[in-house]
Each structure stands twice: as C-alpha cells, then as structure tokens.
Design a binder for these strands. Structure first.
Lengths: 325, 325
DNA sequence: CTGAAAGCGCTTACAG
DNA sequence: CTGAAAGCGCTTACAG
C-alpha cells in the first residue's frame, strides 16, 4: 500500500555492547544475567554501554538457547466473559511476579488448536480455563510443558478448582433458608455438579426440584431464560443461576418484564465476578477464590509441581436473595 | 519442592523428521513452509513423519532466524475494565487472522515498562490502548517494531481512534433534546475532549455547564460520583458520564439511594461496551467502533503502514436517557 | 576474572 | 528437485 518503513537501524546485539564496553561478549551476558564472575569495573562499563546503546537482549535467541521463552500460556473460552476476563487479569499479574509474560489464547476454535499453538511457543507452562480432557493436554506433555487446569478439577491432570457442588449447594440452601419452596434452576441442560447440588438441596428440603430452565454460559442465554421465567404462570419464587453472567441476563429480562428482584423472584448465582457487585440488584453469589486459584496454579506451574486441589466457594450475600432490603 | 518432572522425551526436531522421512532437513522446512520446490512424494513422506512424530517447529528458533516471533503485543491499562476486555478479545481474534498470537501486557506498572517488555520479545507490532506519548514508544521504534495506538489519536504516531468530541457531543445533545436544562458531567477532572464537548453543547444550548462531578475511569469512582449526585440538593435532571464502567457505578449508587433512572436522572455515557446493554436500565451510550478500530490497527501493523485515522462514535439509544420507557 | 568457541533449531540462498 | 552449510543472537562450560 504505502511505502513500508525501511528496516531502520540494525538491531543492536550484545556484540555491539561488548565492542563499546571493550569487553568480550560473554562478559556482557554475565553482567546481564547477574553472574558473579565479573569485576565491578567491567560491570559498570557494560551497563553504561547497554544504556547508551539502548540494548535489549533478543528474546528469541535467549529462548532458543535456554529452551524457555519466559512466558506462560493461558487458554480461555474468551475474554468477553466477565469471569474469564478477571482470570486473565489475575494470570497476567501472577505471571509477571515470576518474570513471565502471558500469551492469551482463546479456545474459540476448540481447545485442541489453542493448545497446539501454545505447545510450539516454548511457553514455560499453560493455564487452561476451559473444559479439557487429559488427551487435549497430550501435546504439551510431549513437549515437556507443564499444564494446570483452572477452575475445575480434572482427573489425572494438575488442576486447581473450586468446589462447585458445595458452592451451589450453599447458594440453593440460602435461598431455601429465606423460606422459598419453589426454587428453579437456570443453567446448562447437561448434568453437572451445580445441578446435582440443586437437586440434592431441594430433595433434602423435601420439595420438588423444578423448574429447570436451560441456558448456556452467556448473558444472552441468561436473558432468554429470564424471559421464559417471567412468562411462567407458575413462576418459582427463587432461582439459582449457574453463573453471574447468566444471572445478569436474567436480571435484564426480569426488569423488562416488570418482575421485581428479590420481591417476586429471588436470585443466587455462581462465580463472584466483580460484575455481581455492580449489577442491580447486586447478586448473592457463590464466589470462586479466583485470585488464590490463579496464584497457586501459576506457582505450581513454575515449580513444575503436579497435583490436584479443590478450594471452597464462599457465599457472598447481597440484595438479590432478599437479605439486604 | 516436590520432585520436578524429568525432562521427558527429548523434543523432536526437524532433524528427526528428516531422518524418519529419509530426506534432508531442508526438505522438511520447505514442506512446512509451503515452498513449491518439493516433489509430491517427498511432501507426503515428510507430512507422514511429522504426524507420526508429533513434530512441532520450535518457535524460538524460527523467531531467531526470521526476526519475527509471529506475535503481536497489546498494552492495556488492565483487562478488568469492560471496554478493554472487549478490546483484548477483538485483538486476539484479529491477530489470529494473520496467524499471530497475542501477548497481553498490563500497564499497571506504567506504560514504559510494559512497552520495554514487549520490545525485547520480537513482537511484530504493538497495539497500545493506554495513554501514551511518542516518547513512550521510542524503544519500539529503535527495535524497528511498528506500534499503533488504539482508541485515541496521538500526534506523530500511527493511531486509530474514535472521535471523542463528536461522540460526547452527540450524547449530551441527545440529553438536551429530551428537554433537560441541567445536564451534569461525571468524568475525570482534567480537561479533555469529552468534557469540552459537554461544555460546548451546553453553551450552544444557552445553559450553564454544571455540575461537574470528578471521577476516574472505574466503576468504583463512578459509584462515588453517583452517591455524590444522589445527595445533591440541586441534582441535575441528566448526566453525561465519560465511560460505561463509570456509568454502571453511578447506576448502582442511584439505585441504592432510590433515585430513578431515567425518571429522576437521565444518563448517557460513552464506550458502547456490551455491558451497557445488560445493566439496568440499559445505557444510552456513544459507542466506539471497537471491532473496526482493532481490525484496522492490526492490518496496519501487519502492513507496517503508518497513519492516523479517527472514526466516528455512534450513539446507541436505550432506556437510560428516557427514550424507551 | 575473561575470551574463544560450540551449539540451541530453524530458514534459505547456493551448488549440484 | 535436493543437500550441505551458514548464520540468526544468545548462554555457558571450558581454557587460559
């Protein structure tokens, strides 16, 4: 199209620095990598040359030699989901703590390709915040790259998850504690631990587990479910929603229909994203210990320490369940 | 701490593939890089060997040789802000279109360090979605890495921005069009184009530009501003808020105080994040053409095509201004 | 304490 | 159409 910029001044390499400082190239590496085997005078000369030349080590060369690109990969379903956006932010911080950069890969075209892309990038580890099987992770194992699954526990794979059953159960029981006897469920149609917790909690309370309104994990699906709820002749007086994002969609539909929350329908959800505190009414939600999960996962990745860990969810009580009027 | 995994099977290199396929290592490269200079039979043998061995080219070696790591850098203030989360998602998609990965760097410790980190990583370009000066970008220029500023236009720097003045002015005028004569401003205390638009629009309408409630670009600050608004004896009947995130904070404070939107206070904001459609009431907002901005910026980065472009904002009318009751 | 040298895995002219 | 070889910029034993 237009004239491409000329390649500009040749990149400055450590050879330039060595020449300028009057030392060997090895000395430059030693100084930069903090080896002790270099005199104070040499160190000063090298550092001065580095500053004068604006030298930056070539990360690719370093990665080739060391077999590490000093970066972590993160696979998310997409950063648009509130909860995953927060995870991305936390992961970036945690990685930075170890001097690692974060390569974000969305699994929009499937988790397999996403992992494949990362596997050839000499990443030092991969954080996976999507549904995966051990097989999906195989290319990483082949390349000697450790992986840690975030958010849920997968058999045979290093994973730091949250106890979805307990979190959901706490939320549903909280709703029951408000005296509700018809507590609906908004979430994926497939069986899962949150759904099981809902079923069990209602069974324990001696009431029927219904209605179930199917919705995938997006605000849009939550909105559709909310419209369905609003239109129900025998609407439940409370619902448990499997994620904050879905609950925010439910909220919108209910508002539009003039159904009041929590007066007409009480709501409790799952995730504890920051958004849950800023919608109206603020959501009572089973909060995942995201910060802790990410920190632990990154630490284990860096230490190449395998293992599984399930952390508890914590019920955060706000207005949507009817607690704070 | 625990025993580190053993280094595992040595990585398979193109030499292994060549041996297995019975061809030279060059042939492997030719096949993988789609060069025409290789026979069909050879190609098939190489591809078979690649599949059998699960070979993945070493990205670092490729980057060193080619001077390109096939990745783009993105500098954001943080991915927690709704708008930047969406930008991150869009950038990841746009980069993938060109076969590039996305390295996300938060400018939490300042834009200088963030850019420095990227500069040594052989990224093929950097997308900057933070306030920057041409000087901040100097290390990139030194390394021959093109940069493009997103979201606003910076003098002397390739940038794809939105017309903040026009967007804000449209929003304020829309509020005036509803008959409001006291239209407040919630946004940063420093002068800026959005604030100027607010001042000008009110001047043109012959009314005083007040009150101005200072708030930085976060939901928390928006919340504080909303509380201040709610407590005002001479509360304006409408406010323009400089971002959706802030507006969502304002909304929460107003709800808590029992101030109705739009009946008591009409609101219009800026950004057009997806969140603006899902809060209550949904926000009338001057929407940035994010998808287009990101696509154009990435295309220009890849083509190393400099230049500046300012795109119009588009007013999306929803309930918060009083339009759709 | 410092320097010369090998090698990380790739790509790509250059000969054949 | 294919192979041998140089070289990208670094790190790090190994001699001195």
């Amino acid at each position: 199209m237009s004239e491409p910029e000329t390649s500009g001044p040749r990149r400055v390499t450590r050879a330039d620095v060595a020449r300028r400082a009057g030392v060997s190239t090895a000395a430059v590496s030693y100084v930069l990598n903090g080896s002790a085997k270099v005199s104070e005078a040499t160190r000063a000369r090298v550092l001065a040359a580095v500053a004068e030349l604006g030298y930056r080590p070539n990360a690719a060369a370093r990665a080739l030699k060391l077999g590490s690109a000093a970066q972590l990969g993160l696979v998310v379903p997409g950063v648009l989901n509130r909860f995953f956006a927060e995870l991305t932010d936390l992961a970036e911080r945690a990685a930075a703590t170890h001097g690692l950069a974060l390569v974000v890969t969305s699994a929009r075209d499937g988790v397999g390709p996403a992992i494949g892309r990362l596997a050839s990038r000499q990443v030092d580890g991969v954080l996976v915040a999507t549904g995966v099987t051990a097989a999906d992770l195989a290319p990483l194992a082949g390349a000697g790259i450790p992986a840690a699954v975030l958010d849920h526990v997968v058999e045979g794979v290093t994973s730091i998850g949250v106890d979805r059953y307990q979190g959901a159960r706490d939320a549903v029981e909280h709703l029951l504690g408000h005296g509700h006897r018809r507590v609906g469920f908004v979430g994926p149609d497939e069986p899962g631990r949150r759904r099981q917790a809902w079923t069990d909690a209602l069974a324990a309370a001696g009431v029927a587990a219904e209605p179930l309104v199917a919705a995938e994990f997006t605000r849009g699906e939550g909105y559709r479910a909310g419209r369905a709820l609003a239109a129900m002749p025998d609407r439940p007086s409370a619902v448990f929603v499997t994620s904050d994002d879905q609950a925010i969609g439910v909220l919108l539909a209910l508002h539009e229909a003039g159904v009041r929350v929590p007066e007409d329908v009480a709501i409790a959800s799952f995730d504890g994203s920051q958004e849950s505190a800023y919608c109206w009414p603020p959501l009572t939600t089973a909060a995942q210990p995201s910060e802790e999960m990410v920190r632990i996962a990154v630490d284990r990745l860096v230490a190449r320490e395998p293992g599984q860990l399930e952390l508890p969810a914590r019920l955060v009580v706000r207005r949507s369940c009817g607690c704070t009027p």
